[in-house]
């Protein structure tokens, strides 16, 4: 299976190192790039999308080299940037038609057919000829993924796609991503662990420009193995503990509160070790 190989890619802006020797190997399917704000996710996505040239390192997919053949890269690439928006005075269909032309879909009939299929896939057929100025944030994001899919690219780069979406739209968007992931590489960058959990099969975590790859989500979760404790306490005790221990989440039942606590050692005799979630693995990794 062809993999996207990223080999020691670095990028600096002045003295600031945005990416430091990032090496990843990404196979088909949805690949998540998780990291806090300012970690270097968007820089990495922009490097992948050929908008920025790395200072050093290389990237390749099949026989295509990023540094040497950016035009070829763009031909196999779909990109949904973080702040995707569209001219307000054009319709969704016109937007896709324009980008289709830029992607080299010269045959008008073929282009139309592809646009119609994509609009249906992202559930925008009914709104296709409405001006995008009337679209909601979620609709615009779906239009964004449709434009990224134009030309049937082998690699799709999606930067923070669910930020600012309401839960319903977020779920709908994740579903779209899952549907289109088959047979291609999708790199999804986000700071929302839930997005990765819901869609990705493998993940990399990035912090201060340094990325670490995990073959599976469970491996990242395992980073927190032995550090997550379930502690049942009384509601009034729970309030006290919030400031004393690292509470990740809490569930309130009729007479008590279940706290998930992140700690190297058991915070109490009542606390029992539990298997960590992805978010907990990420938090532990992030705190290192």
């Amino acid at each position: 299976m062809d993999r996207l190989v990223i080999d020691h890619v670095s990028k600096h802006f002045g003295k600031t190192a945005a990416l430091q020797s990032v090496s990843l190997q990404i196979g088909h399917g949805l690949f998540g790039l998780l990291g806090p704000n300012g970690a270097g996710k968007t820089t990495f996505m922009r490097v992948l999308a050929t908008l920025l040239a790395p200072d050093s390192g290389s990237m390749r997919y099949k026989d295509i080299q990023w540094g040497k053949q950016p035009e070829r890269v763009r031909n196999i690439l779909g990109y949904l940037p973080q702040n995707f928006n569209v001219f307000k005075n054009i319709s969704g269909y016109e937007c896709l038609d324009y980008i289709g032309v830029l992607k080299g879909l010269r045959d008008k009939k073929q282009r139309r057919a592809q646009i119609e299929t994509l609009l249906e896939r992202v559930n925008l057929t009914a709104e296709a000829h409405k001006k995008t100025g009337h679209y909601s944030g979620g609709m615009k994001r779906r239009l964004g993924i449709a434009q990224a899919l134009l030309g049937n690219p082998e690699i799709i780069i999606v930067d923070e796609p669910t930020a600012g979406l309401d839960p319903e739209e977020r779920i709908r968007f994740r579903n779209v991503l899952r549907e289109v992931a088959a047979g291609r590489i999708i790199v999804l960058s986000t700071h929302i662990v839930e997005d990765i959990e819901a869609t990705c099969s493998s993940v990399a975590v990035i912090k201060k420009g340094i990325a670490t790859q995990f073959d599976s989500l469970s491996k990242l979760a395992q980073e927190a193995a032995g550090h997550v404790w379930l502690w049942k306490v009384r509601p009034e005790q729970a309030v006290d503990l919030q400031s004393k221990v690292n509470v990740i989440s809490s569930t309130t039942t009729e007479d008590h509160v279940e706290l998930r606590v992140l700690a190297k050692e058991s915070p109490s005799r009542e606390a029992i070790p539990v298997s960590p979630t992805l978010e907990e693995g990420y938090l532990i990794w992030n705190q290192r």
Partner: peptide, 9 residues
């Protein structure tokens, strides 16, 4: 940004 990543940009 989206347009810039397209081959015909």
């Amino acid at each position: 940004e989206c347009l810039a990543s397209a081959p015909g940009s």
